[in-house]
Write a protein that binds this DNA or RNA. Structure first.
Lengths: 253, 253
DNA sequence: GATGGTCAGATGGTCAGACCAGTTACAGAA
DNA sequence: TTCTGTAACTGGTCTGACCATCTGACCATC
C-alpha cells in the first residue's frame, strides 16, 4: 500500500510539540562509544568491537547497535565497510567542510540571508587582506601577480573570468595560511561562483572587477593593510550594488 | 562475548583505504526523500509517508527505510517521534550551532589549533568591533557601559569576572546584529569560558583585561573603528602571551 | 623464501516477521 | 454537544536468518 500524495494539504506553521521526546535505546550506546573514542580507548584507525560483540556487551539487539553505529558515522567519528569492523576515523576536513557548507546554505536561505552572509564575507575578506598585506612574501606576491594577470587575460569570457576571479581571492586567502580560513573559502566557493556568473553579465563588470583586484594587489604589494582592506571593502560593496536584490539563494551543492 | 581490549595494539596512522565503498540501499532513499523535501513536495511541518508505506513504495525492508529516516534526522531535515509519522523540520539554528561547535572543536584539536583558531578569532573580533564602532546607537553604548561596569565589579572573583568578560564581548557582537556572527560567538562560548578560567588565574590579569575592555569601550563610544580594532588586537595578543603554550584543547561540550 | 590460490570464519548489509508503546481519529454513550 | 473508550496507525525494538565482503590461515608452486 503506497501513500503518495497523502497528507500533503497545505498546513499552517506547525505548532511546537509539547511532549518530551523519549530517549532512545541506541542514544545511550552512542554516548558511551563516543566517549570511548574521545578518551582514546579506541584511537584513530582502530577497529571498534563488532556489532555482535556490542549487542552482547550492552544487551541490546543488533539493530539497535547498528543504529548507534550509523549515528556515529553520521557524526563523522567512524566509518563502516562490509566485511570489516567499523573503524575510528579522525575528524576529517572534508566532513567538516560539508558541515560548514550546510551551515552557509542555511544562513543564505534565511530572510535577509544574502545581506547577513555578505556582511560576514566582508568581515572575513577584509580581515584576510589585512593579514595578507602584513605577511606576503616576495614569492607569494609573484604568485598573486600571476593570478591577477590570468584574471586580466580572461576579460571577455564570463566563465573563465569568474573562475580566475575566485582564484585570485583564494590566493589572497592562502597567504594567510590558516586552515579555518581556507575551509571557509572552499565552503562558499561554489556559491561564490554562481554569484559571479550572475554579476559578470553586467556590462563592463569584468573591467571593474579586474581594476579592483589590481588595486587590492597593489595595496598588498605595498604592505598596506588599511589600504588593502579599504579596497576590498569598496570592491565588495560595488558587487553588492549590482547583485540582484532578492535572487533565489542557490545551494552550493 | 565481549571484545573489550581486543585489537588495541598501537598501530601506525592508517593508510587510506583504496577499495571503493559500495553504495548502500538506504542512501538512494535518502537522496530521493531529501530532494522531495528540498523541492517542497513535503513542506516544513508536513508529515512524511509512514515507514510501512515507504517500504512498499520503494520495495525495501522497513529496516532500510528506518536507516534512511535516521540519516535524514541526523542531517536535521526531519524529526521522528513514536506513534506519529516523521515530520519535515526547517533547518534549525540549534542544529547549525552544534555543527559549528563541532567544526570549532575539530580545528582546535588539530596541531597548532590554538594558534589557528586564535587567528580567526582575532580576525572576527577585530572586524566586529569595527562594525560596532561604526554602528553603535546611544542605547547600545549604554548597554555596553553596563556590561563594562559589571566586569569591573567582578574584579577579584575569577568565575564571575570570566562570565562578565564573555558577556562584554557578546554585547559588542550583538551591536552588529548578524545571526552568523552571533552563532559563531555562541559556538565558541563555552570554550572561551574555559580559556578565561585558566588565563584569569594569572596575577593581576583581571585588572589588565578590564582596562583593555575599557579602552575598547571608549573607542566604540568615540566612533573610532580603527582604534577599536587596534585595542581589541592588543587585548587578544596579550591574552595569547599569557595563555599556556600547549594546553589540552578542551571540547566546548 | 616469495607468491598465488583456496577456503573457512568473521564481518557488515539487508530481509521478514513479530511485539510493544505512543498517538490519533472516530463512533457511541451520556 | 461533549466525553470516553477503542481501534487503527504509527514508530521503537527485538529475533532469527541469509547474502555479500573481507581477512587470515594454509597449502602448492617456483
Amino acid at each position: 500500500m503506497t501513500s503518495q500524495g497523502q497528507d500533503r494539504a497545505q498546513a499552517p506553521a506547525p505548532r511546537e510539540r509539547r511532549t518530551v521526546r523519549r530517549r532512545r535505546m541506541h542514544e545511550d550506546l552512542v554516548d558511551v562509544l563516543a566517549e570511548d573514542i574521545r578518551q582514546g580507548i579506541y584511537p584513530v584507525g582502530d577497529p571498534l568491537p563488532s556489532e555482535r560483540c556490542l549487542m552482547d556487551e550492552f544487551g541490546v539487539s543488533r539493530l539497535t547497535v547498528r543504529e548507534a553505529m550509523a549515528a556515529l558515522e553520521s557524526h563523522g567519528l567512524i566509518e563502516t565497510r562490509p566485511g570489516t569492523r567499523a573503524r575510528v576515523c579522525g575528524p576529517r576536513a572534508d566532513f567538516l567542510l560539508s558541515m560548514l557548507s550546510q551551515a552557509a546554505v542555511f544562513y543564505l536561505q534565511q530572510p535577509g540571508g544574502l545581506h547577513t552572509f555578505g556582511e560576514v564575507r566582508e568581515l572575513v575578506e577584509t580581515g584576510v587582506v589585512r593579514l595578507a598585506a602584513e605577511r606576503a612574501t616576495a614569492t607569494q606576491i609573484e604568485e598573486l601577480a600571476a593570478r591577477l594577470q590570468a584574471n586580466r587575460d580572461a576579460i571577455g569570457d564570463t566563465k573563465i573570468f569568474g573562475q580566475t576571479d575566485i582564484e585570485f581571492h583564494l590566493a589572497v586567502a592562502q597567504i594567510v595560511d590558516n586552515p579555518i580560513i581556507s575551509s571557509f573559502f572552499r565552503a562558499v566557493e561554489q556559491w561564490l561562483q554562481e554569484v559571479r556568473d550572475i554579476s559578470l553579465r553586467n556590462e563592463g563588470q569584468m573591467d571593474i572587477a579586474y581594476a579592483a583586484h589590481a588595486r587590492i594587489f597593489e595595496a598588498i604589494k605595498a604592505g598596506s593593510p588599511d589600504l588593502a582592506a579599504q579596497e576590498m571593502r569598496v570592491h565588495l560593496h560595488q558587487l553588492a550594488t549590482i547583485y540582484p536584490r532578492n535572487p533565489d539563494a542557490k545551494s552550493p551543492f
